[in-house]
Amino acid sequence: MKKNMGSADKIIRVIIAIVIAVLYFTGTISGTVGIIALIIGGVFLFTSVISNCPLYSIFGINTCKVPKK
């Protein structure tokens, strides 16, 4: 899998995933909306770990800095 996410994208996604988890586990969001938010947070966290976003691939976006040779 080719990396297409830069470090700024990864940091932002991890922060959003943490905020969603905190909101869910403190009871601020709950029910179906909370579960959907947790799933989205999990996807954000997973894509940050693997440094690849499938939607970026579809739309041809690449925020990963490639070292020049």
Results as ranks from 00 to 15, higher is better:
Met1Ala: 10
Asn4Cys: 04
Asn4Met: 06
Met5Ala: 02
Ala8Glu: 06
Lys10Arg: 15
Lys10Glu: 01
Lys10Leu: 03
Lys10Asp: 00
Lys10Val: 04
Ile11Met: 08
Ile12Tyr: 00
Arg13Pro: 00
Ile16His: 02
Ile16Trp: 00
Ile18Tyr: 01
Ile18Phe: 01
Val19Asn: 06
Val19Pro: 02
Val19Ala: 11
Val19Ser: 09
Val19Glu: 10
Ile20Gly: 02
Ile20His: 05
Ile20Phe: 03
Ile20Val: 12
Ala21Val: 04
Leu23Arg: 07
Tyr24Pro: 01
Phe25Ser: 11
Phe25Gly: 04
Ile29Asp: 05
Ile29Gln: 11
Ser30Gly: 10
Gly31Cys: 09
Thr32Pro: 04
Thr32Glu: 12
Val33Ile: 13
Val33Asn: 13
Val33Thr: 14
Gly34Val: 11
Ile35Met: 10
Ile35Cys: 02
Ala37Val: 05
Ala37Asn: 07
Ile40Asp: 04
Gly41Met: 10
Gly42Asn: 08
Phe44Cys: 06
Phe44Met: 14
Leu45Arg: 12
Leu45Met: 10
Leu45Ala: 11
Val49Ile: 15
Val49Met: 12
Val49Asp: 02
Cys53Leu: 12
Pro54Thr: 14
Tyr56Thr: 10
Ile58Asn: 11
Phe59Tyr: 11
Phe59Asn: 09
Gly60Leu: 10
Gly60Ala: 12
Ile61Leu: 10
Ile61Cys: 03
Asn62Leu: 03
Thr63Pro: 00
Thr63Asp: 05
Thr63Tyr: 00
Lys65Trp: 03
Lys65Arg: 15
Val66Gln: 14
Lys68Val: 11
